[in-house]
């Protein structure tokens, strides 16, 4: 995936720069045409999917329970804003830190097995988290945390208007997006890819692969948690639905559809999946059925996803 050609700009190839400019333009212009709250939701899930993609796309780890970290981020963000009156940036950071702490513990347990066992263990641990969330007092059980006031940014800028919080969400999304890009293109990221390609060989070269996997897992869960905290601030609510296995499945779908192991795939996937949800939500279980059909179609017909296929056609890395 990495194009270490002669002309890269901070690691971006020319094609990626073009894609980046398009993405920035869309983020800047879209709120004039599309409901900003919808766009914010897309950006939260795009960041979440990018964090998930860091594991599946670049380390080859399928974490089938990533909603545990996103959902916990939602709860923490909502609780910090409502009960403690934290400013927005602290809510998001705290959501990331708590999710990362959880990720450190669960990641250490899950990386003891490889392949599909890893997927099953992460799923089981996420279900464990779901049960805990139904029992713990601070999550509000079935009710969740509702009517979370939108906090001030840095304690002084009001985020009560949709456009104000839109720019904050866009900022956090872009910071996360660049952060992930830098992780992938760092020497650390190259080792992650080596582990994905051939784990025994990486071990024989002297890399402590378990530590690399764990660090990647913690980074990914931090970003997922921050994305969750942000979503809680945007919607003013944190509920059990963000911690369910269905939500974990959705993020796998988002990333698969956009393109596993591509930079822009998760964002495109988030746009498509959220748009589908928006239009199909009046039809109840047709959302689930459509998602299932997309899963099957992706796996059978285009495993590289939308961006992966496009990049392959144009012979560039995206």
């Amino acid at each position: 995936m990495s194009a270490s050609t002669s002309s890269t700009y901070w690691g971006f190839t020319k094609a990626q720069i073009v894609a980046l400019v398009i993405m920035l333009a869309v983020i800047a212009i879209a709120p004039t045409a599309v409901y900003p709250v919808f766009l914010m939701k897309v950006m939260c899930f795009a960041l979440f999917a990018s964090a998930f993609n860091l594991l599946i796309g670049y380390v080859g780890l399928l974490s089938f329970g990533h909603s545990a970290y996103f959902g916990m981020g939602c709860y923490i963000g909502a609780y910090a804003a409502k009960a403690w009156g934290f400013p927005a940036e602290l809510c998001v950071i705290l959501a990331g830190v708590v999710a990362a702490a959880m990720g450190a513990v669960f990641g250490a347990i899950a990386i003891r097995r490889q392949g599909i066992y890893f997927a099953m263990i992460t799923l089981a641990l996420a279900q464990f988290t779901y049960f805990l969330c139904t029992q713990m007092a601070f999550t509000g059980g079935e009710d969740g945390i509702q009517q979370v006031p939108r906090p001030f940014l840095l304690g002084m800028f009001s985020l009560s208007s949709d456009m104000a919080i839109y720019w904050m969400v866009a900022g956090v999304f872009l910071i996360g997006f660049f952060g992930i890009f830098r992780i992938i293109h760092s020497p650390f990221g190259q080792v992650l890819k080596a582990i994905r390609e051939n784990e025994p060989r990486a071990i024989s070269l002297g890399y402590r692969v378990d530590q690399y996997k764990l660090i990647a897992f913690v980074l990914s869960t931090f970003i997922a948690g921050a994305a969750g905290g942000m979503k809680a601030l945007v919607f003013g609510i944190a509920t059990l639905s963000d911690v369910t296995w269905q939500s974990s499945g959705e993020i796998v779908l988002t990333t698969l559809l956009g393109g596993l192991g591509t930079i822009f795939g998760p964002a495109i996937g988030a746009v498509i999946v959220n748009t589908l949800q928006f239009y199909l939500s009046p039809f109840g279980s047709w959302v689930t059925i459509t998602q299932g059909i997309i899963f099957v179609t992706c796996v059978m017909l285009f495993r590289r996803g939308v961006i992966g296929e496009l990049a392959d056609k144009l012979k560039i890395a995206l």
């Binding site: 499945g249 796998v252 698969l256 689930t288 059925i289 998602q291 299932g292 059909i293 997309i294 899963f295 099957v296 992706c298 796996v299 059978m300």
Partner: peptide, 9 residues
């Protein structure tokens, strides 16, 4: 992933 999709359907 495929069997997960089948399960959803």
């Amino acid at each position: 992933l495929l069997t997960f999709g089948i399960a959803l359907i």
